[in-house]
Amino acid sequence: MFRGQRGWFCGSVGQDLRQLWVAEGGTVCDVQAADFLFSCDASHPDTLRIYQSLDYIEDNATVFHAYYLYAVANAEMKTSVALGHFILPPASVQKEIRRKVGGFIWEQDKYFQIEKHDEL
């Protein structure tokens, strides 16, 4: 599914999710070279750095919640998982969105088999 794709992972993403990425053919790389930016925590310094970058403000760097990888792993049709549902906006933006439309799909735990993350 992710063959030839390069992914960057925030420190907030657990090892199991990185492994899912690699198992699907993805490679791990730095922010600049990445096609996909994954995070589990919009307030993590690694992810904050992206929100403060020129790439981000010029619409060239959308961060996705790494639960996208769980969703893909669990989907019968891997390509049927819509990436758009997994956009992870900055924390202040999330607050505003929650106020207006309720939650995000990645907050619905029942869709994801949450395994223990490295809590480091």
């Binding site: 794709q5 990445a34 096609d35 996909f36 930016l37 619409d59 060239n60 760097a61 959308t62 961060v63 996705f64 390509t79 049927s80 998982v81 819509a82 990436l83 758009g84 549902h85 956009i87």
Partner: peptide, 15 residues
């Protein structure tokens, strides 16, 4: 637009 499923979609172009 939201439920677009395209293999080429990624962090660099979805916005």
């Amino acid at each position: 637009g939201c439920i677009a499923v395209r293999k080429s979609l990624n962090s660099r172009n979805i916005s």
